[in-house]
Amino acid sequence: MTTGRALTALTRTLKPLDAYALAVGDDALIASHRLSEWLTRAPDLEEEVALANIALDQLGQARFLLGYAGRSSGLSEDELAYRRSDREYRNCLLAELPNGDFAHTVLRLLLFSAYQRQLYAGLGESADDELAAFAKKASVEVDYHYEYAVSWTLRLGDGTEESHDRMAAALEELWPYTAELFADDPLASGLSADGLVPEPERLHGPWMEQVTSVLAEATLGAAPSVNRRPGGGRAGLHTEALSYLLAEMQSVHRAHPGATW
């Protein structure tokens, strides 16, 4: 087992492509965790099954990416998942926000899965064969997540007055967090110059087109204009929510140091 200090040191000195993969993996891991919190609380049994399905896909993506990221440093997926502090996590803030109501969750999934679609489509062209193969498979999964999110966005946006209002509130709250997804990132820029990953800014246009079209059809109007752009997740600067999430997630693992499960 890698010691805490060694783990911190190793994660700080990951090769660029490994660090990038870790961030993408953290997105999927945290997103999956939030969805799993819905089990036994979903609006209907069919949604229990559907949300669990999406959470499982995302968890599978996370496991591949964490495994990939840790390989050259000898770090396992579990060491990365369970022994990093929130200052060492590199997920986007959008993924870590608390679930809120079902409207909030649906809209977050819409925004996030639409982003992953663009991301994985770009990553499918990577000069790194392993990442490209992963991305192609993951694309099929996120297409399905996106379809699910679109379906519910339409139903809730254009359902009852109450559902519309809840969706509108969710949109106001979540939209500011989307800026971070496409923000300038020196790590990604360097790698995209080598044809290894897509440039985040390039993903924005197609993402915006898709999302605004769905929002319009759902009678939610244009995207809100915002004057705040929360960010910092890629640098380990998170909202206060993440350390609570990790405290829970890591609790059993940390209570038994060195154990296998």
Partner: peptide, 17 residues
Amino acid sequence: SLHAPDAEIALRRARDL
């Protein structure tokens, strides 16, 4: 069998189930 409002959702639920 399953319940769904339309064919698209029925297919998705059938896939899940």
